[in-house]
Design a binder for these strands. Structure first.
Length: 524
RNA sequence: GCGGGCGUAGCUCAGUGGUAGAGCGCCACCUUGCCAAGGUGGAUGUCGUGAGUUCGAAUCUCAUCGCCCGCUCCA
Protein backbone atom coordinates (compact mmCIF):
# COMPACT_ATOMS: atom_id res chain seq x y z
CA UNK A 1 0.00 0.00 0.00
CA UNK A 2 1.27 3.43 -0.87
CA UNK A 3 2.36 5.69 1.93
CA UNK A 4 -0.39 8.28 2.22
CA UNK A 5 1.42 10.17 4.95
CA UNK A 6 3.64 12.01 2.50
CA UNK A 7 1.57 15.16 2.25
CA UNK A 8 2.39 18.83 2.04
CA UNK A 9 -0.75 20.91 2.62
CA UNK A 10 1.17 24.19 2.57
CA UNK A 11 2.55 23.47 -0.89
CA UNK A 12 -0.93 22.50 -2.09
CA UNK A 13 -2.40 25.75 -0.77
CA UNK A 14 0.22 27.74 -2.65
CA UNK A 15 -0.58 25.84 -5.83
CA UNK A 16 -4.33 26.41 -5.51
CA UNK A 17 -3.68 30.06 -4.81
CA UNK A 18 -1.42 30.47 -7.84
CA UNK A 19 -3.98 28.70 -10.02
CA UNK A 20 -6.58 31.27 -9.12
CA UNK A 21 -4.29 34.30 -9.08
CA UNK A 22 -2.83 33.63 -12.51
CA UNK A 23 -5.94 32.29 -14.17
CA UNK A 24 -5.37 28.56 -14.39
CA UNK A 25 -8.36 27.24 -12.46
CA UNK A 26 -11.36 28.90 -10.80
CA UNK A 27 -14.17 27.44 -8.81
CA UNK A 28 -17.31 27.02 -10.90
CA UNK A 29 -20.13 29.37 -9.98
CA UNK A 30 -17.90 31.30 -7.60
CA UNK A 31 -19.86 34.48 -8.20
CA UNK A 32 -22.88 32.83 -6.60
CA UNK A 33 -21.07 31.09 -3.78
CA UNK A 34 -19.59 28.19 -5.70
CA UNK A 35 -20.74 24.81 -6.93
CA UNK A 36 -19.30 21.93 -4.99
CA UNK A 37 -17.12 19.58 -7.03
CA UNK A 38 -17.06 21.66 -10.22
CA UNK A 39 -14.25 23.79 -11.63
CA UNK A 40 -13.70 26.21 -14.49
CA UNK A 41 -10.41 26.50 -16.34
CA UNK A 42 -9.20 30.05 -16.91
CA UNK A 43 -7.20 31.25 -19.92
CA UNK A 44 -3.90 29.62 -18.95
CA UNK A 45 -5.44 26.45 -17.54
CA UNK A 46 -7.35 25.99 -20.78
CA UNK A 47 -4.16 26.25 -22.83
CA UNK A 48 -2.44 23.75 -20.55
CA UNK A 49 -5.29 21.27 -20.70
CA UNK A 50 -5.58 21.65 -24.46
CA UNK A 51 -1.85 20.99 -24.86
CA UNK A 52 -2.21 17.82 -22.82
CA UNK A 53 -5.23 16.55 -24.73
CA UNK A 54 -3.69 17.40 -28.10
CA UNK A 55 -0.48 15.60 -27.20
CA UNK A 56 -2.37 12.54 -25.93
CA UNK A 57 -4.45 12.47 -29.11
CA UNK A 58 -1.39 12.82 -31.33
CA UNK A 59 0.53 10.05 -29.53
CA UNK A 60 -2.44 7.73 -29.05
CA UNK A 61 -4.40 8.11 -32.27
CA UNK A 62 -2.54 10.01 -34.97
CA UNK A 63 0.90 8.47 -34.56
CA UNK A 64 -0.43 4.90 -34.27
CA UNK A 65 -1.84 2.71 -37.00
CA UNK A 66 -3.93 0.59 -34.66
CA UNK A 67 -6.01 3.17 -32.78
CA UNK A 68 -8.97 5.14 -34.13
CA UNK A 69 -10.71 8.07 -32.51
CA UNK A 70 -14.29 8.78 -31.70
CA UNK A 71 -16.36 11.35 -29.84
CA UNK A 72 -19.52 9.98 -28.28
CA UNK A 73 -22.62 11.65 -26.92
CA UNK A 74 -22.63 12.58 -23.28
CA UNK A 75 -26.35 11.87 -22.87
CA UNK A 76 -26.68 8.14 -22.50
CA UNK A 77 -29.64 5.80 -22.87
CA UNK A 78 -30.84 4.04 -19.77
CA UNK A 79 -30.59 0.67 -21.56
CA UNK A 80 -26.86 1.10 -22.15
CA UNK A 81 -26.20 1.69 -18.48
CA UNK A 82 -28.49 -1.13 -17.47
CA UNK A 83 -26.43 -3.54 -19.55
CA UNK A 84 -23.13 -2.12 -18.37
CA UNK A 85 -24.21 -2.57 -14.78
CA UNK A 86 -24.09 1.10 -13.83
CA UNK A 87 -27.78 1.06 -13.01
CA UNK A 88 -28.53 -1.41 -10.25
CA UNK A 89 -25.41 -3.47 -10.30
CA UNK A 90 -22.55 -1.37 -9.06
CA UNK A 91 -24.10 0.97 -6.56
CA UNK A 92 -23.69 -0.17 -2.99
CA UNK A 93 -26.59 0.02 -0.54
CA UNK A 94 -25.49 2.01 2.51
CA UNK A 95 -26.87 2.33 6.05
CA UNK A 96 -26.20 4.98 8.67
CA UNK A 97 -25.98 4.20 12.36
CA UNK A 98 -28.72 6.18 14.14
CA UNK A 99 -26.51 6.59 17.19
CA UNK A 100 -22.93 7.10 16.02
CA UNK A 101 -23.79 8.30 12.47
CA UNK A 102 -21.23 5.85 11.11
CA UNK A 103 -21.90 4.81 7.53
CA UNK A 104 -21.82 1.11 6.79
CA UNK A 105 -22.17 -0.94 3.64
CA UNK A 106 -25.33 -2.97 4.10
CA UNK A 107 -23.88 -5.98 2.30
CA UNK A 108 -20.83 -6.11 4.55
CA UNK A 109 -22.65 -6.38 7.90
CA UNK A 110 -22.31 -9.82 9.49
CA UNK A 111 -25.71 -11.33 10.32
CA UNK A 112 -26.34 -11.40 14.07
CA UNK A 113 -28.61 -13.30 16.48
CA UNK A 114 -29.99 -12.05 19.78
CA UNK A 115 -32.64 -10.07 21.58
CA UNK A 116 -33.88 -6.76 20.23
CA UNK A 117 -35.39 -4.17 22.56
CA UNK A 118 -38.01 -1.97 20.93
CA UNK A 119 -38.98 1.41 22.35
CA UNK A 120 -41.83 3.60 21.16
CA UNK A 121 -40.47 6.86 22.52
CA UNK A 122 -38.97 8.67 25.46
CA UNK A 123 -39.61 11.58 27.78
CA UNK A 124 -37.76 13.68 30.31
CA UNK A 125 -39.40 14.00 33.75
CA UNK A 126 -40.14 17.46 35.12
CA UNK A 127 -39.94 18.96 31.65
CA UNK A 128 -42.34 19.04 28.74
CA UNK A 129 -39.88 17.24 26.47
CA UNK A 130 -41.29 14.11 24.91
CA UNK A 131 -40.76 12.20 21.67
CA UNK A 132 -42.77 9.53 19.91
CA UNK A 133 -39.80 8.38 17.82
CA UNK A 134 -39.48 4.60 17.83
CA UNK A 135 -36.05 3.07 18.30
CA UNK A 136 -34.57 -0.40 18.71
CA UNK A 137 -31.35 -1.81 20.10
CA UNK A 138 -29.85 -5.25 19.64
CA UNK A 139 -28.42 -6.76 22.83
CA UNK A 140 -24.86 -7.56 21.87
CA UNK A 141 -23.00 -10.55 23.33
CA UNK A 142 -21.65 -9.67 26.78
CA UNK A 143 -24.06 -6.75 27.27
CA UNK A 144 -26.65 -6.64 30.03
CA UNK A 145 -30.09 -5.04 29.83
CA UNK A 146 -28.85 -1.88 31.52
CA UNK A 147 -26.32 -1.36 28.73
CA UNK A 148 -29.07 -1.74 26.12
CA UNK A 149 -31.20 0.89 27.84
CA UNK A 150 -28.20 3.18 28.16
CA UNK A 151 -27.66 2.92 24.41
CA UNK A 152 -31.31 3.81 23.86
CA UNK A 153 -31.12 6.78 26.21
CA UNK A 154 -28.03 7.99 24.38
CA UNK A 155 -29.98 7.84 21.14
CA UNK A 156 -32.87 9.85 22.57
CA UNK A 157 -30.50 12.34 24.15
CA UNK A 158 -29.74 13.58 20.63
CA UNK A 159 -33.21 15.13 20.59
CA UNK A 160 -33.09 16.71 24.02
CA UNK A 161 -32.11 20.35 23.96
CA UNK A 162 -28.70 20.51 25.60
CA UNK A 163 -29.66 23.67 27.43
CA UNK A 164 -32.07 21.73 29.68
CA UNK A 165 -29.26 20.48 31.90
CA UNK A 166 -25.81 19.04 31.56
CA UNK A 167 -25.63 16.18 29.15
CA UNK A 168 -24.75 13.33 31.52
CA UNK A 169 -27.64 14.02 33.83
CA UNK A 170 -29.97 14.41 30.87
CA UNK A 171 -29.08 10.99 29.53
CA UNK A 172 -29.56 9.34 32.93
CA UNK A 173 -32.92 10.96 33.45
CA UNK A 174 -34.48 10.03 30.11
CA UNK A 175 -37.49 7.74 30.56
CA UNK A 176 -37.79 5.07 27.91
CA UNK A 177 -41.32 4.15 26.85
CA UNK A 178 -43.10 1.13 25.42
CA UNK A 179 -40.28 -1.37 25.93
CA UNK A 180 -40.82 -4.80 24.31
CA UNK A 181 -38.34 -7.49 23.37
CA UNK A 182 -38.05 -9.78 20.40
CA UNK A 183 -35.75 -12.69 19.54
CA UNK A 184 -34.15 -12.28 16.14
CA UNK A 185 -31.74 -14.38 14.07
CA UNK A 186 -29.58 -13.42 11.11
CA UNK A 187 -30.38 -9.72 11.28
CA UNK A 188 -28.26 -7.06 9.58
CA UNK A 189 -30.37 -4.14 10.73
CA UNK A 190 -28.20 -3.30 13.75
CA UNK A 191 -24.73 -1.83 14.09
CA UNK A 192 -22.38 -4.62 15.26
CA UNK A 193 -20.30 -2.01 17.07
CA UNK A 194 -22.97 -0.66 19.43
CA UNK A 195 -26.24 -2.50 18.78
CA UNK A 196 -27.99 0.61 17.50
CA UNK A 197 -30.66 0.42 14.83
CA UNK A 198 -29.47 1.45 11.35
CA UNK A 199 -31.34 3.42 8.73
CA UNK A 200 -32.94 1.48 5.88
CA UNK A 201 -30.31 0.51 3.29
CA UNK A 202 -30.27 3.20 0.63
CA UNK A 203 -28.93 2.95 -2.88
CA UNK A 204 -26.59 5.82 -3.47
CA UNK A 205 -27.29 7.53 -6.73
CA UNK A 206 -23.85 7.63 -8.28
CA UNK A 207 -24.92 8.93 -11.68
CA UNK A 208 -26.33 12.27 -12.77
CA UNK A 209 -29.67 12.03 -14.44
CA UNK A 210 -31.48 14.40 -16.77
CA UNK A 211 -34.75 14.56 -18.63
CA UNK A 212 -35.79 15.50 -22.12
CA UNK A 213 -38.70 15.29 -24.53
CA UNK A 214 -41.50 17.86 -24.82
CA UNK A 215 -42.61 17.43 -21.23
CA UNK A 216 -39.34 16.08 -19.93
CA UNK A 217 -40.79 12.59 -19.68
CA UNK A 218 -37.76 10.80 -21.09
CA UNK A 219 -34.88 9.90 -18.80
CA UNK A 220 -31.23 10.00 -19.84
CA UNK A 221 -28.03 9.89 -17.89
CA UNK A 222 -24.88 11.92 -18.16
CA UNK A 223 -22.30 9.24 -18.93
CA UNK A 224 -20.28 8.05 -15.94
CA UNK A 225 -17.41 7.05 -18.25
CA UNK A 226 -16.59 7.54 -21.92
CA UNK A 227 -16.02 3.80 -22.32
CA UNK A 228 -19.64 2.78 -22.86
CA UNK A 229 -20.10 4.70 -26.10
CA UNK A 230 -16.96 3.01 -27.43
CA UNK A 231 -18.31 -0.46 -26.60
CA UNK A 232 -21.67 0.42 -28.11
CA UNK A 233 -20.09 1.70 -31.33
CA UNK A 234 -17.40 -0.93 -31.54
CA UNK A 235 -19.24 -2.82 -34.26
CA UNK A 236 -19.89 0.30 -36.34
CA UNK A 237 -16.26 1.35 -36.14
CA UNK A 238 -15.17 -2.16 -37.10
CA UNK A 239 -17.56 -2.33 -40.07
CA UNK A 240 -16.75 1.13 -41.40
CA UNK A 241 -12.98 1.15 -41.10
CA UNK A 242 -11.57 -2.13 -42.37
CA UNK A 243 -9.59 -2.77 -39.21
CA UNK A 244 -8.31 -6.05 -37.85
CA UNK A 245 -7.61 -7.17 -34.29
CA UNK A 246 -5.86 -5.96 -32.34
CA UNK A 247 -7.08 -2.38 -32.58
CA UNK A 248 -8.20 0.35 -30.25
CA UNK A 249 -10.78 3.12 -30.12
CA UNK A 250 -9.80 6.25 -28.24
CA UNK A 251 -11.90 9.03 -26.83
CA UNK A 252 -11.36 12.22 -24.89
CA UNK A 253 -14.38 13.72 -23.21
CA UNK A 254 -16.42 14.71 -20.21
CA UNK A 255 -17.88 12.24 -17.77
CA UNK A 256 -19.99 12.79 -14.69
CA UNK A 257 -20.28 11.11 -11.32
CA UNK A 258 -22.27 12.14 -8.32
CA UNK A 259 -19.29 12.00 -6.00
CA UNK A 260 -20.41 11.82 -2.41
CA UNK A 261 -17.49 13.89 -1.32
CA UNK A 262 -15.49 15.92 -3.87
CA UNK A 263 -12.04 16.64 -2.48
CA UNK A 264 -8.53 17.80 -3.20
CA UNK A 265 -9.06 20.68 -5.62
CA UNK A 266 -9.87 19.32 -9.09
CA UNK A 267 -8.73 15.80 -8.22
CA UNK A 268 -12.14 14.42 -7.42
CA UNK A 269 -14.82 16.36 -9.25
CA UNK A 270 -18.40 15.67 -10.22
CA UNK A 271 -17.68 16.66 -13.80
CA UNK A 272 -14.37 15.55 -15.23
CA UNK A 273 -12.64 14.71 -18.47
CA UNK A 274 -11.28 11.31 -19.38
CA UNK A 275 -8.78 10.15 -21.97
CA UNK A 276 -9.65 6.54 -22.63
CA UNK A 277 -8.58 3.78 -24.96
CA UNK A 278 -10.47 0.54 -25.39
CA UNK A 279 -8.03 -1.81 -27.03
CA UNK A 280 -9.70 -4.86 -28.57
CA UNK A 281 -7.68 -8.05 -28.91
CA UNK A 282 -7.70 -11.82 -29.08
CA UNK A 283 -8.37 -13.39 -25.66
CA UNK A 284 -4.93 -14.99 -25.46
CA UNK A 285 -3.20 -11.60 -25.90
CA UNK A 286 -5.03 -9.71 -23.15
CA UNK A 287 -2.58 -10.18 -20.31
CA UNK A 288 0.47 -9.41 -22.43
CA UNK A 289 -1.10 -6.28 -23.93
CA UNK A 290 -2.07 -5.02 -20.48
CA UNK A 291 1.61 -5.04 -19.53
CA UNK A 292 2.57 -3.42 -22.83
CA UNK A 293 0.02 -0.64 -22.41
CA UNK A 294 1.29 0.01 -18.90
CA UNK A 295 4.77 0.64 -20.34
CA UNK A 296 3.38 2.82 -23.13
CA UNK A 297 1.48 4.91 -20.67
CA UNK A 298 4.41 5.31 -18.28
CA UNK A 299 6.51 6.56 -21.18
CA UNK A 300 3.78 9.05 -22.01
CA UNK A 301 3.93 10.56 -18.54
CA UNK A 302 7.70 10.90 -18.75
CA UNK A 303 7.29 12.70 -22.09
CA UNK A 304 4.95 15.31 -20.65
CA UNK A 305 7.16 15.98 -17.65
CA UNK A 306 5.96 13.64 -14.94
CA UNK A 307 9.08 11.65 -14.09
CA UNK A 308 8.93 7.95 -13.53
CA UNK A 309 10.22 8.24 -9.96
CA UNK A 310 7.14 10.26 -8.95
CA UNK A 311 4.82 7.54 -10.29
CA UNK A 312 3.82 4.43 -8.41
CA UNK A 313 2.40 1.33 -10.00
CA UNK A 314 -0.20 -0.49 -8.00
CA UNK A 315 -0.85 -4.03 -9.17
CA UNK A 316 -4.39 -4.19 -7.84
CA UNK A 317 -4.69 -7.48 -5.95
CA UNK A 318 -7.43 -10.11 -6.25
CA UNK A 319 -10.55 -9.06 -4.44
CA UNK A 320 -9.93 -5.34 -4.90
CA UNK A 321 -10.31 -5.32 -8.66
CA UNK A 322 -13.67 -4.94 -10.35
CA UNK A 323 -15.14 -8.42 -10.61
CA UNK A 324 -14.79 -8.58 -14.38
CA UNK A 325 -11.13 -7.57 -14.43
CA UNK A 326 -8.38 -10.14 -14.63
CA UNK A 327 -5.59 -7.63 -14.14
CA UNK A 328 -5.54 -3.96 -13.18
CA UNK A 329 -2.67 -1.56 -12.74
CA UNK A 330 -3.22 1.79 -11.11
CA UNK A 331 -0.71 4.44 -12.09
CA UNK A 332 -0.41 6.76 -9.11
CA UNK A 333 1.30 10.10 -8.70
CA UNK A 334 2.77 11.73 -5.59
CA UNK A 335 0.40 14.66 -5.23
CA UNK A 336 1.05 17.08 -2.35
CA UNK A 337 -2.10 15.67 -0.74
CA UNK A 338 -0.98 12.04 -1.05
CA UNK A 339 -0.29 9.34 -3.56
CA UNK A 340 -3.34 9.15 -5.79
CA UNK A 341 -4.46 7.48 -9.00
CA UNK A 342 -3.88 9.15 -12.35
CA UNK A 343 -4.80 6.30 -14.61
CA UNK A 344 -6.02 2.73 -14.51
CA UNK A 345 -4.87 0.12 -17.01
CA UNK A 346 -7.44 -2.64 -16.75
CA UNK A 347 -7.84 -5.92 -18.57
CA UNK A 348 -11.63 -6.10 -18.76
CA UNK A 349 -11.85 -9.43 -20.65
CA UNK A 350 -14.96 -9.71 -22.86
CA UNK A 351 -17.22 -8.48 -20.07
CA UNK A 352 -18.30 -5.26 -21.78
CA UNK A 353 -18.97 -6.59 -25.25
CA UNK A 354 -20.63 -9.59 -23.61
CA UNK A 355 -23.15 -7.59 -21.61
CA UNK A 356 -23.96 -5.33 -24.56
CA UNK A 357 -24.42 -8.29 -26.91
CA UNK A 358 -26.77 -9.81 -24.38
CA UNK A 359 -28.52 -6.56 -23.49
CA UNK A 360 -29.11 -5.49 -27.10
CA UNK A 361 -29.68 -8.97 -28.50
CA UNK A 362 -27.23 -8.15 -31.30
CA UNK A 363 -24.20 -10.27 -32.16
CA UNK A 364 -20.92 -8.49 -31.47
CA UNK A 365 -18.53 -11.27 -32.36
CA UNK A 366 -15.45 -10.65 -34.43
CA UNK A 367 -14.83 -12.95 -37.38
CA UNK A 368 -11.18 -13.75 -37.98
CA UNK A 369 -10.70 -14.26 -41.72
CA UNK A 370 -7.45 -16.18 -41.32
CA UNK A 371 -8.39 -18.67 -38.64
CA UNK A 372 -12.13 -18.69 -39.49
CA UNK A 373 -12.87 -18.22 -35.79
CA UNK A 374 -15.78 -16.23 -34.41
CA UNK A 375 -15.36 -14.82 -30.92
CA UNK A 376 -15.93 -11.81 -28.64
CA UNK A 377 -12.76 -9.72 -28.50
CA UNK A 378 -11.23 -9.02 -25.12
CA UNK A 379 -10.51 -5.47 -24.02
CA UNK A 380 -7.57 -3.71 -22.41
CA UNK A 381 -8.51 -0.28 -21.11
CA UNK A 382 -5.95 2.43 -20.34
CA UNK A 383 -8.18 5.10 -18.79
CA UNK A 384 -6.54 8.36 -17.78
CA UNK A 385 -8.02 11.25 -15.84
CA UNK A 386 -7.41 14.39 -17.87
CA UNK A 387 -8.05 16.90 -15.09
CA UNK A 388 -5.99 14.80 -12.72
CA UNK A 389 -3.11 14.81 -15.15
CA UNK A 390 -3.39 18.59 -15.57
CA UNK A 391 -3.27 18.86 -11.79
CA UNK A 392 -0.23 16.58 -11.70
CA UNK A 393 1.47 18.74 -14.34
CA UNK A 394 0.78 21.83 -12.23
CA UNK A 395 1.97 20.18 -9.00
CA UNK A 396 5.08 18.82 -10.68
CA UNK A 397 5.91 22.16 -12.30
CA UNK A 398 5.48 24.29 -9.19
CA UNK A 399 8.80 25.37 -7.72
CA UNK A 400 10.02 28.08 -5.39
CA UNK A 401 13.65 28.96 -5.88
CA UNK A 402 15.82 30.89 -3.43
CA UNK A 403 17.83 33.53 -5.25
CA UNK A 404 18.91 35.69 -2.31
CA UNK A 405 22.68 35.51 -2.59
CA UNK A 406 23.39 38.96 -1.22
CA UNK A 407 21.60 38.38 2.06
CA UNK A 408 18.24 39.61 0.82
CA UNK A 409 15.62 36.95 0.50
CA UNK A 410 14.32 36.64 -3.02
CA UNK A 411 12.04 33.74 -3.81
CA UNK A 412 11.34 33.09 -7.45
CA UNK A 413 8.17 31.15 -8.17
CA UNK A 414 8.61 29.10 -11.33
CA UNK A 415 6.26 26.72 -13.09
CA UNK A 416 8.68 24.35 -14.75
CA UNK A 417 6.33 22.99 -17.41
CA UNK A 418 7.86 21.15 -20.30
CA UNK A 419 7.80 23.55 -23.27
CA UNK A 420 5.30 21.25 -25.04
CA UNK A 421 2.81 21.65 -22.18
CA UNK A 422 3.45 25.31 -21.29
CA UNK A 423 0.39 27.55 -21.84
CA UNK A 424 2.52 30.35 -23.27
CA UNK A 425 5.47 29.24 -25.37
CA UNK A 426 7.30 32.52 -25.65
CA UNK A 427 6.95 36.07 -24.35
CA UNK A 428 8.26 39.09 -26.24
CA UNK A 429 9.39 42.33 -24.61
CA UNK A 430 10.84 45.59 -25.81
CA UNK A 431 13.59 46.41 -23.34
CA UNK A 432 12.24 49.92 -23.00
CA UNK A 433 8.63 50.73 -23.62
CA UNK A 434 9.47 54.26 -24.68
CA UNK A 435 11.76 53.15 -27.49
CA UNK A 436 9.43 53.13 -30.48
CA UNK A 437 11.67 51.02 -32.67
CA UNK A 438 11.98 48.32 -29.99
CA UNK A 439 8.21 48.26 -29.57
CA UNK A 440 7.65 48.10 -33.32
CA UNK A 441 10.11 45.25 -33.79
CA UNK A 442 8.73 43.32 -30.80
CA UNK A 443 5.22 43.45 -32.21
CA UNK A 444 6.52 42.41 -35.60
CA UNK A 445 8.18 39.33 -34.10
CA UNK A 446 4.99 38.58 -32.19
CA UNK A 447 2.99 38.60 -35.45
CA UNK A 448 5.61 36.39 -37.08
CA UNK A 449 5.41 33.70 -34.38
CA UNK A 450 1.69 33.83 -33.58
CA UNK A 451 0.50 31.50 -36.35
CA UNK A 452 2.74 28.79 -34.89
CA UNK A 453 2.41 29.07 -31.15
CA UNK A 454 0.89 30.96 -28.25
CA UNK A 455 2.89 34.18 -27.89
CA UNK A 456 2.57 36.85 -25.20
CA UNK A 457 3.60 40.50 -25.57
CA UNK A 458 4.37 42.67 -22.54
CA UNK A 459 5.94 46.11 -22.21
CA UNK A 460 4.95 47.18 -18.70
CA UNK A 461 7.45 47.92 -15.93
CA UNK A 462 11.03 46.76 -15.63
CA UNK A 463 12.10 43.87 -17.81
CA UNK A 464 13.17 41.85 -14.76
CA UNK A 465 9.66 41.97 -13.41
CA UNK A 466 8.28 40.82 -16.75
CA UNK A 467 10.63 37.83 -16.68
CA UNK A 468 9.41 36.90 -13.22
CA UNK A 469 5.77 37.19 -14.23
CA UNK A 470 6.39 34.75 -17.05
CA UNK A 471 8.26 32.39 -14.70
CA UNK A 472 5.16 32.20 -12.56
CA UNK A 473 3.03 30.95 -15.45
CA UNK A 474 5.71 28.66 -16.82
CA UNK A 475 6.65 30.38 -20.08
CA UNK A 476 9.86 28.60 -21.12
CA UNK A 477 11.37 31.37 -23.25
CA UNK A 478 11.39 35.16 -23.24
CA UNK A 479 12.63 37.32 -26.08
CA UNK A 480 13.85 40.86 -25.45
CA UNK A 481 14.30 43.38 -28.22
CA UNK A 482 17.09 45.66 -27.00
CA UNK A 483 19.56 48.26 -28.26
CA UNK A 484 21.78 45.60 -29.85
CA UNK A 485 18.79 44.48 -31.90
CA UNK A 486 18.70 47.94 -33.40
CA UNK A 487 22.45 47.73 -34.08
CA UNK A 488 23.10 51.07 -32.45
CA UNK A 489 26.49 50.40 -30.89
CA UNK A 490 27.50 46.97 -32.14
CA UNK A 491 26.41 46.75 -35.76
CA UNK A 492 27.28 43.04 -35.98
CA UNK A 493 24.48 42.31 -33.44
CA UNK A 494 21.83 44.11 -35.51
CA UNK A 495 18.84 41.85 -36.05
CA UNK A 496 19.53 39.67 -33.02
CA UNK A 497 17.55 39.46 -29.80
CA UNK A 498 18.14 38.31 -26.23
CA UNK A 499 16.63 34.90 -25.58
CA UNK A 500 16.20 34.15 -21.91
CA UNK A 501 15.66 30.64 -20.53
CA UNK A 502 13.12 30.17 -17.77
CA UNK A 503 14.81 27.37 -15.84
CA UNK A 504 18.40 28.60 -15.78
CA UNK A 505 17.66 32.31 -16.24
CA UNK A 506 20.54 32.27 -18.71
CA UNK A 507 20.52 34.39 -21.84
CA UNK A 508 21.82 33.94 -25.34
CA UNK A 509 21.60 35.92 -28.58
CA UNK A 510 19.64 34.67 -31.54
CA UNK A 511 18.99 36.19 -34.94
CA UNK A 512 15.35 37.18 -35.45
CA UNK A 513 15.29 35.06 -38.60
CA UNK A 514 16.33 31.97 -36.62
CA UNK A 515 13.69 32.35 -33.94
CA UNK A 516 10.87 30.40 -35.55
CA UNK A 517 12.81 27.22 -36.35
CA UNK A 518 14.64 27.41 -33.02
CA UNK A 519 11.37 27.63 -31.10
CA UNK A 520 9.47 25.11 -33.19
CA UNK A 521 12.11 22.51 -32.44
CA UNK A 522 11.52 22.98 -28.73
CA UNK A 523 7.87 23.77 -28.02
CA UNK A 524 5.99 20.88 -29.59
C1' G B 1 -23.45 11.98 4.94
C1' C B 2 -20.84 12.70 10.07
C1' G B 3 -17.20 15.43 13.28
C1' G B 4 -13.66 19.61 13.72
C1' G B 5 -11.61 24.26 11.68
C1' C B 6 -12.36 28.39 8.41
C1' G B 7 -14.83 32.34 5.05
C1' U B 8 -13.01 40.51 5.38
C1' A B 9 -9.68 43.84 -1.45
C1' G B 10 -6.82 39.80 -6.86
C1' C B 11 -3.50 37.16 -2.81
C1' U B 12 -1.94 36.73 2.58
C1' C B 13 -4.31 38.40 6.63
C1' A B 14 -5.47 42.31 10.92
C1' G B 15 -9.93 44.16 12.81
C1' U B 16 -14.77 40.99 19.49
C1' G B 17 -20.96 45.88 19.04
C1' G B 18 -19.93 52.41 17.02
C1' U B 19 -16.80 55.93 9.96
C1' A B 20 -13.81 49.21 6.19
C1' G B 21 -7.80 48.36 7.21
C1' A B 22 -2.33 46.75 6.14
C1' G B 23 1.36 44.34 3.14
C1' C B 24 1.97 42.39 -1.52
C1' G B 25 -0.33 42.53 -6.34
C1' C B 26 -2.93 45.63 -10.07
C1' C B 27 -3.48 50.49 -13.14
C1' A B 28 -1.30 55.42 -14.75
C1' C B 29 2.88 58.59 -14.99
C1' C B 30 8.16 59.15 -13.77
C1' U B 31 12.61 56.29 -13.24
C1' U B 32 14.86 51.84 -15.23
C1' G B 33 20.82 49.58 -20.87
C1' C B 34 18.60 42.54 -18.68
C1' C B 35 16.15 39.46 -13.61
C1' A B 36 10.77 41.29 -8.36
C1' A B 37 9.84 44.80 -4.02
C1' G B 38 12.70 53.06 -6.61
C1' G B 39 9.31 57.78 -6.79
C1' U B 40 4.28 60.01 -7.32
C1' G B 41 -0.71 59.24 -7.88
C1' G B 42 -4.98 55.81 -8.34
C1' A B 43 -8.77 51.89 -8.49
C1' U B 44 -10.82 47.72 -6.06
C1' G B 45 -15.07 45.28 -0.81
C1' U B 46 -23.03 43.15 -1.30
C1' C B 47 -16.95 41.69 5.42
C1' G B 48 -19.57 34.17 1.53
C1' U B 49 -25.31 34.45 1.40
C1' G B 50 -30.11 34.98 3.99
C1' A B 51 -32.82 35.84 8.29
C1' G B 52 -32.80 37.30 13.57
C1' U B 53 -31.14 40.17 18.16
C1' U B 54 -29.80 45.51 18.69
C1' C B 55 -30.54 52.55 18.46
C1' G B 56 -26.42 50.36 15.72
C1' A B 57 -23.68 43.84 13.41
C1' A B 58 -17.59 42.19 9.82
C1' U B 59 -18.19 41.35 15.24
C1' C B 60 -23.69 38.07 18.80
C1' U B 61 -27.67 33.93 17.26
C1' C B 62 -29.79 30.62 13.60
C1' A B 63 -29.93 28.73 8.77
C1' U B 64 -27.56 28.10 4.16
C1' C B 65 -23.44 27.85 0.53
C1' G B 66 -18.31 27.08 -0.11
C1' C B 67 -13.15 25.74 1.36
C1' C B 68 -9.59 22.79 4.47
C1' C B 69 -8.60 18.43 7.84
C1' G B 70 -10.32 13.60 9.72
C1' C B 71 -14.01 9.58 8.96
C1' U B 72 -17.08 7.41 4.98
C1' C B 73 -17.29 6.48 -0.29
C1' C B 74 -15.09 6.11 -5.15
C1' A B 75 -18.45 1.08 -10.76
Amino acid sequence: MANKDVTDPVRMEKIVSLCKRRGFIFQAGELYGGLNGCWDYGPLGTELKRNLKDYWWRKTVQERDDVLGMDGAILTMEEVLQSSGHIGGFSDPMCDCLLSKARLRADQIDPQDGTVYHFTGASLPETDWKTEKAYSVLQLPGQDEAKVRKTAREYYSQFVKESLMNKKDAIKAIQLEGETTEKVTGTTRYNPANGSLLTEPREFNLMLQTNFGATGEQVAYLRPETAQSIFCQYKNVLDSNRVKLPFGIAQVGKSFRNEINPRNFTFRSREFEQMEIEYFCRPEDGMRLTDEWLETRLNFYAEIGIPRNKLHILDVPDGERAFYSKKTYDIEYEFPFGIQELEGVAYRTDYDLGVHAKGSGRPLEYFDEETKERFLPHVVEPSAGCDRTVLALICEAFDEEELGTDGKSDIRTVMRFMPSMAPIKVAIFPLLKKNEEQVRLSKEIQKQLQPWMNVFYDDSGAVGRRYRRQDEVGTPFCITVDFETLGEETPELKGTVTLRHRDSMEQERLAIDDLLPWLLARVR
